[in-house]
Design a protein around this nucleic acid. Structure first.
Lengths: 204, 204
DNA sequence: GCTGGAACTTTCCGGAATTGCAAATTTTCC
DNA sequence: GGAAAATTTGCAATTCCGGAAAGTTCCAGC
């Protein structure tokens, strides 16, 4: 017992994670190449080299498979924030971590633009996306609670608002033809949340 | 032509709306009485007195039927804000409308508590709920844009944050044993958004 | 008010999607 | 090396879904 109480995954779990990732990746690729309709348990399983029954053991639907990779990267956001020095004020952590992390998570602008386009015509895919966001929001709320000591309403409001900002910034950046880099857009949104949401006087 | 250019729905459309509402209501009732598993196109259609095929003409799934009533009340939120005097500053409108409207929309505390309990063990139902919220968020963003003249990022951030506040307040109110009335909780959340989200210094 | 046409509901039905199960295969541990 | 545990696979049973056609209800024009 050289390794002590190490909880390394072990080959079995690593393989599971690998096929899961391979299935999700394949599902995404097929969607990019031939559209959402072409993604099926059969097509995905064939590309990975497993049976379609195995696909169903991992995912309940094509949408779940397509989202899964994204989902896992999303969830990493909370850990990123948690890794910041505990003495750092929360907003500083958020403003430091999110704008940079956002880019890595969503990948290229083309990817996210395609995703948004597909999502707008597939409520099911949108729903799975929202589920992933919701889970991330829960994880982020935990971190906020740890950092601030607040235990009740505030962490969820903060987490929800921050993810709304993230979603808004990403959507705008991907769908509008702007030169501003994503991190800058997101930083602006977060600063708004920190300082109080600006809403101009009513237009006369 | 006494009534002028009235666009009253007409009997046919009223009947459609009625069966839709009846189906949704029946779906909700069955869920309350016998649990989510007991809600099926057959059981719902039978209670209303239509064929199960008709149920499928209206809703694609039990979850959609269960959520539908709530959905429609949600969507009314945006109109409520729009109806406020145009000269009123946006935050005043929001703080005035939402806390009171929230209560009407979600019904009794028991209803929402049950809903949350069921949702936690049914991802599909949660997903449909999130879809409804998302649509409401879009509608609210339109109103914000009309009111403030802002056209790009801000309306979506504001709308998303406000709905996060709504969801947080409702969830807390329904799941924790607090004496504070829902409108007060929600007002607090909205004031936080207006003034800047408070996050205490890190706990030493 | 009555009649033709449009819209909605119902019945029937076939194919696709989903789930459960047990055998076969692979991994782990001793 | 071999037993135990976990995973993959194929198959069967079942449910789900939506199209087509017939029947029923509403609306508009005469």
């Amino acid at each position: 017992m050289v390794g002590g109480v190490s909880d390394e995954p072990g080959l079995r779990d690593r393989k599971k994670a690998a096929t899961r990732a391979a299935l999700s990746h394949a599902a995404w690729s097929i969607m990019v190449e031939d559209g959402l309709a072409a993604v099926s348990p059969e097509s995905v399983a064939e590309r990975v080299g497993v049976s379609s029954r195995t696909f169903r053991n991992y995912f309940a639907s094509r949408e779940e498979a397509i989202i899964d990779g994204w989902s896992r990267r999303h969830h990493a956001l909370a850990d990123r924030v948690r890794e910041r020095p505990p003495a750092e004020p929360l907003w500083d952590s958020l403003v430091r971590v999110l704008p940079e992390a956002a880019l890595e998570i969503i990948g290229s602008r083309d990817d996210i633009a395609l995703m948004i386009r597909v999502i707008t015509e597939s409520p099911t895919l949108l729903a799975h996306n929202l589920l992933a966001l919701q889970r991330t929001s829960g994880l982020l709320a935990e971190v906020v609670a740890e950092r601030t000591g607040e235990r009740r309403l505030v962490p969820h409001v903060v987490a929800g608002a921050v993810l709304a900002a993230l979603a808004s910034a990403v959507t705008y950046w991907a769908t509008h033809d702007t030169d501003e880099p994503l991190p800058d857009l997101l930083r602006q949104c977060l600063e708004h949340l920190r300082a109080g949401l600006p809403v101009g006087p009513p237009t006369p």
